[in-house]
């Protein structure tokens, strides 16, 4: 009787082990963001955070950084009277993230900067983003695709939208699992707010898993105090700023006894 059941129990154990092993490979994402909170102090000039983790050896990983979605109203350049280039209308973009950075491993890096079909099929990149943003223009015949491309150019110039090639590095491989790390440079223009860093794990050319980590950027110390006064007590801030400027001007005037500055 005992002998009769032994092979069955053994088989069940083997199957369980196989399942556990494949399961481990599937839910691969042990990711870690360091640091998860960035403080903007008086001498802040941008920061660097690092996302590390492990994925199956055969998989790839892309790292996406996204800001809160917002509405932004921009002025649109056009030709007035067919001659002069100036602001000729307004464009409002709804649901566009304040920040969008996509960090790519070597396998997905290309010379071509911008959205491409491979990235779109993985649910990332600027083309994918374009589909999520609604654009309204004061011109009826405006080309929304072209407008979004111009918006991306504007944000790229500020460093708030970026597509970084060769930015994900694979470091070691062991037992069918490999480690990755991605250094993310946060430009000083990234404002106080909540951001999300996502590891998109690619298996067999498909996005198999997305794992998020929150990233918080917050003002502390002097910048926080000044912003608080400026936004909550605007008139008082203006008066203090004027009084201090007058005192500084009088002080400079007394030191130099001179002709003052620019006006």
């Amino acid at each position: 009787m005992r002998n009769k059941f032994l092979p069955a129990i053994g088989l069940a154990l083997v199957m369980l082990l196989v399942c556990a092993a494949s399961g481990a490979a599937q839910t691969s994402s042990s990711i870690h963001l360091e640091p998860g909170t960035v403080s903007i102090g008086a001498m802040y000039n941008g920061a660097q955070v690092t996302l590390t983790g492990t994925i199956p050896a055969s998989a790839q990983v892309l790292v996406e950084v996204k800001g809160e979605r917002d509405k932004v109203v921009l002025s649109k350049k056009g030709k007035a009277f067919g001659l002069l280039w100036m602001n000729t209308g307004e464009v409002s973009l709804e649901n566009a993230p304040t920040v969008y950075m996509l960090n790519l491993p070597e396998a997905y890096s290309s010379e071509e900067d911008g959205g491409n079909a491979a990235l779109t099929s993985l649910g990332v990149g600027f083309d994918k983003l374009a589909g999520e943003v609604s654009i309204e223009s004061s011109d009826c015949d405006a080309n929304n695709k072209a407008l979004f491309e111009e918006f991306v150019k504007l944000k790229k110039k500020e460093g708030l939208y970026a597509l970084n090639n060769n930015a994900v590095k694979y470091t070691g491989e062991k037992n069918g699992v490999r480690s990755f790390s991605c250094n993310i440079s946060l430009p000083p223009r990234m404002k106080q707010g909540d951001y999300v860093v996502t590891a998109v794990v690619i298996k067999d050319g498909k996005a198999a898993e997305r794992d998020d980590r929150p990233l918080e950027i917050k003002r502390v110390g002097i910048p926080e105090f000044m912003a608080k006064v400026a936004y909550e007590h605007g008139a008082l801030y203006g008066i203090i700023a004027s009084v201090i400027a007058i005192m500084a001007g009088l002080g400079m005037g007394l030191i130099f006894g001179g002709d003052g500055g620019s006006h």
Binding site: A241, S242, A245, I246, A248, G249, L250, M252, G253, F256, G258, D259, G260, G261, S262, H263
Partner: peptide
Amino acid sequence: QIVGASTSG
């Protein structure tokens, strides 16, 4: 800043 500059001037 012009407030300060024009004060000394």
